[in-house]
């Protein structure tokens, strides 16, 4: 059985920067327990064998393009989708807590 508890779901949601409601915690705990039990099956395939990892289906190394300056987004374009901006920058809430 998996170790997915309501506290763990809250903790993981916190790490993921998602505020979750109590109702979501309850539902996700139940659903994620089932999913985690099911995906743990990957270890059965590996019993008694040693295989390398594949992180990328078609590996390519050292992919470079010619070092030529190309047009990029203007400052105005880069800021065009921002919820808030000013003086040519993204404007955000306080980075640090008051304490």
């Amino acid at each position: 059985m998996s170790e997915i508890t309501p506290d763990l779901v809250r903790h993981l949601a916190g790490l993921s920067r998602i505020l979750v409601t109590d109702e979501e915690v309850e539902r996700f705990t139940e659903q994620l327990s089932l999913i985690v039990d099911s995906v743990a099956k990957v270890n059965e395939a590996l019993a008694g064998i040693d295989v390398p990892s594949t992180s990328h289906p078609i590996p390519m190394a050292n992919v470079f393009r010619e070092d030529i300056v190309e047009p990029s987004l203007t400052q105005e374009q880069a800021l065009s989708g921002a919820p808030d901006s000013g003086e040519g920058r993204f404007r955000v809430a306080a980075i640090l807590d008051e304490e």
Binding site: V9, S16, R17, I18, L19, L32, V36, A94
Partner: peptide
């Protein structure tokens, strides 16, 4: 703080399947 704004934004902006998978992936 910006962290609380992010968390509130992602709570309101993401649907259930996206939240499930982000939490699962983080795990």
């Amino acid at each position: 703080t910006i962290e609380r704004v992010m968390a509130a934004t992602r709570e309101a902006g993401f649907g259930p399947e996206v939240k499930r998978r982000i939490i699962l992936g983080t795990y």
